[in-house]
Design a binder for these strands. Structure first.
Length: 426
RNA sequence: GUGGCCUUAGCUCAAUCGGUAGAGCAUCGGAUUGUGGCUCCGAAGGUUACGGGUUCAAGCCCCGUAGGCCACCCCA
């Protein structure tokens, strides 16, 4: 045997046995996108490094150490530009929004995508270098109602996918008006305790003081004693946050205000949130997160436009579904077509007729004895076997229920109806 | 980027003191020519992750590399 090649580190193959869970997750995401009137958008899997550096912030972990760089080909300047696989979808969507002049469209714009993201960090439970997200963005709506609607949408997603105990943690981190003062308050506070900070936090204090709150290495009393952004909000931000919380109460969305939640990306303003499984502290408990980014469009060269959105990590959702034992009903309306000797023409013709009628068919292509074919049919999960034999001359085939063993002779055109009655559940 | 544990058949695992690789499950075939699931018989499947070292002899001891798992940072 030739030397084998394995999947790249931090990536994995989606095998057929996991398909049911992924199908469910993607189906719910697509259906909710439809019901909440989001339109599909697709952006490239790679963009210029500069887009992410400017959009997410130079000091964000995603840019600082997790950028998955694409080595450019030789040739033109275009090809030699620095590219990176997208670590998150928002920057690309905002880039497209600006590039296509989408601000002139009747708004607010509601955009959604499902696709892979890439971060070059070390693989771990629930963390991969390639992972999948469902992302939704509302661009052009500054009001708190849309914050609540979007959070409620994510919450509904978790429920419909079958998960329980998912709660939203949220915070308001202010805006261009009040953040500078809060920022200074943090600098003042942490400067007093500079000897208790980690090297990393001392650096963050210079670059982005909010992210010192994110440093889990610091003693709890140090971060809990730090100034809270909620206490430093300007009147507008305070009112906005208050309304978001009230609306979530009205909608019955369980939420917890977390003063340490600042989020890893620099573009967030006002509302920031994260979805976690209650009681699962420590490891990769975040199932999704997002927030408002009222300054991002302008930062990337567009005219000032508010935005809000979230990304949900579908890999982690699938893992959580497995952990919680979410049941995924297996339809067994698959029909195997078996027959005798070399009557493949008959089998394929019958298979075609059944497919015309809309059912899933798997003809046996072998000339094995009938018993082997039936055994194989049951093993691949068929609920029914259609046995093609002499009676086909009169339009009849044997229809055998592979779970009960019952069998009778039916007309080919009646098979589909019998199968869709769906009595073949195991 | 840092640390710990690990790597033998497709999967889960054995292999005594260092003595030349085994089981269960799964797969495929058979058990008197047209009816599966149970049972029985049989076959196939390995450069013991890769590379080097020590030794008469290495799956086992030593070094390196890669990969996996777990945790930290951070996040989805």
């Amino acid at each position: 045997m030739a030397k084998t090649i394995s999947a790249p580190r931090g990536t994995r193959d989606l095998l057929p046995e996991e398909a049911a869970a992924w199908n469910r997750v993607e189906a719910v995401a697509r259906d909710l996108s439809r019901r909440y009137a989001f339109e599909r958008i697709e952006t490239p899997l790679f963009e210029r490094v500069e887009l992410f550096a400017r959009g997410l912030g130079e000091s964000s972990a995603a840019v600082e150490k997790e950028m998955f760089r694409v080595s450019g080909a030789t040739g033109s300047d275009e090809e030699r530009a620095e590219w990176a696989l997208r670590p998150e979808p928002t920057a690309g969507i905002v880039r497209a929004f600006i590039e296509h002049g989408m601000h002139v469209r009747p708004g607010p714009l509601r955009l959604s995508l499902i696709g892979p993201m890439f971060r070059y960090d070390r693989p771990q439970a629930g963390r991969f270098r390639q992972f999948s997200q469902w992302d939704v963005e509302v661009v052009g709506d500054p009001g708190p109602a849309v914050d609540a609607e979007v959070i409620e949408l994510a919450h509904r997603f978790y429920t419909e996918v079958g998960l329980t105990d998912v709660v939203v943690h949220l915070n308001s981190i202010g805006d261009a008006v009040c953040r500078p003062a809060y920022r200074q308050a943090l600098v003042d506070y942490f400067s007093v305790h500079i000897e208790r900070l980690t090297d990393d936090s001392r650096r963050r204090l210079q670059v982005n003081p909010l992210r010192v709150l994110d440093d889990k290495m610091l003693a709890a009393d140090l971060t809990e004693g730090a100034p809270k952004s909620a206490d430093h909000l300007c009147d507008e931000c305070r009112a906005h946050f208050r309304q978001v919380l009230d609306l979530l109460d009205t909608l019955g969305v369980r939420h917890i205000v977390d003063h340490r939640l600042v989020r890893g990306l620099d573009y967030y303003t006002r509302t920031a949130f994260e979805f976690v499984i209650a009681g699962r502290e420590g490891q990769q408990q975040a199932l999704g997160g997002g927030g408002r980014y009222d300054g991002l469009v302008e930062l990337l060269g567009g005219r000032a436009t508010p935005g809000i959105g979230f990304g949900i990590g579908l890999d982690r959702v699938v893992i959580a579904m497995q952990e919680q034992g979410v049941s995924l009903p297996q339809a067994s309306d698959l029909v195997a077509v078996v027959g005798f000797a070399d009557d493949h023409a008959d089998r394929l013709r019958v298979a075609g007729q059944l497919r015309d009628a809309g059912i899933a068919v798997r003809p046996d292509g072998s000339s094995r004895k009938l018993g082997k074919q039936l055994e194989a049919a049951a093993k691949v999960g068929a609920g029914w076997a259609v046995i093609v034999g002499e009676e086909l001359r009169t339009g009849l085939v044997g229809l055998k229920n592979l779970h009960s063993g019952e069998q009778d002779s039916v007309a080919v055109e009646d098979v589909a109806a019998r199968v869709s009655e769906g009595s073949a559940l195991p």
